[in-house]
Design a protein around this nucleic acid. Structure first.
Lengths: 171, 171
DNA sequence: TTGGAAAGTCAACAAGGCTGACATAAACTG
DNA sequence: CAGTTTATGTCAGCCTTGTTGACTTTCCAA
């Protein structure tokens, strides 16, 4: 039972024990439990603002790509415009996000964080980075490379595009 | 900017470029985009049953630990009993889960999958494993070890306990 | 025998997804 | 210029899944 790998072995008799159902199940549970840790710290901060993860995600990607359009954000987040609009509206009303009418194309709204929005973004991302920094440090650089490699392979191709777009070249 | 690591270097002048804010941000986005891929395939199946991810999680952990109690499931899933109860009730009503009164302690309910419940579990976990198998295979065994190491470090200690509990020794 | 733990239930609420329909302005196209 | 497409916003309603609070029943254990 432990060796049911569906596609047993590669070229030179490699057994691929890391592809057993049991190993895959551990990977699945690792994703589940780790994602909870991943969101736990920002969630505490968000509760103070009575915001949710949807606000966090919007603020994160506006910070990453200042001046991004609503449509672009929509495709990154993978939600409907009604859902995103509800979040953006509260962020604009609360003065955390500014939606500037496009110069070339006046239909577009270019999104920017205000000073207060940048403050929230900093608080959220620092909390999240702190946990990840400890995890990275404890696991070491080679583990981090593996972590990134597996996660990248797990993404849908469209999402992988967005992921790689956000690279500054040195990554 | 690229080298702001908060705790600059270790013993023998290691620069720790993998701990820059930019690298941490990539890790954060990797988690976000990969988790979407991770849930995408089961979500399609669940839609046919008009179930959600909460049902998937319950079915997964009942399958992993047959006879587990409601309280134990509660602490694994990290939700309120009211929230879990709603999900369990539908699963019991639909004949996917059986809740057996405890023999020693009759207050407890020991949860088991029925044959139909096991069918759904198989469909869901096969879909999820297929994606993970491809990701693991493309990334290779060393990357998988790193993936597991980083995720384990990212968990809250309580969750890590549950994660390690589910190990069959060979993992 | 009594206190407290385990489980279940009811009610109310909120976040954040979804669909569908519709409005407006701007850009594009023939 | 007329018609179509695109980008955005908005209203209404629905669902899942989380929450809190209050309460009951069952039953183990001191």
């Amino acid at each position: 039972m432990a060796e049911r790998t569906t596609s047993a072995s590669i070229g030179r008799g490699e057994t691929r024990l890391f592809l057993t159902d049991e190993q895959l199940r551990k990977g699945i549970e690792a994703m589940f439990f780790a994602y909870r840790g991943f969101t736990a710290d920002p969630d505490l901060i968000l509760a103070d603002y009575s915001y949710g993860r949807a606000h966090h995600r919007a603020v994160h990607f506006i910070n990453r790509s200042p001046g991004t359009t609503v449509n672009n954000l929509l495709s990154i987040l993978g939600v409907t415009k009604q859902s995103l609009n509800r979040v953006l509206r509260t962020l604009v009303e609360d003065g955390l996000v500014e939606a500037r009418v496009g110069k070339r194309d006046k239909r577009e709204r270019h999104l920017h964080l205000t000073a207060r929005g940048a403050d929230l973004e900093r608080a959220l991302s620092e909390a999240q980075r702190n946990r990840m920094r400890v995890a990275f440090r404890n696991a070491g650089p080679e583990a981090v490379a593996g972590f990134r490699a597996v996660l990248e392979e797990m993404m849908d191709p469209d999402m992988r595009r967005h992921y790689l777009d956000g690279t500054d070249g040195s990554a």
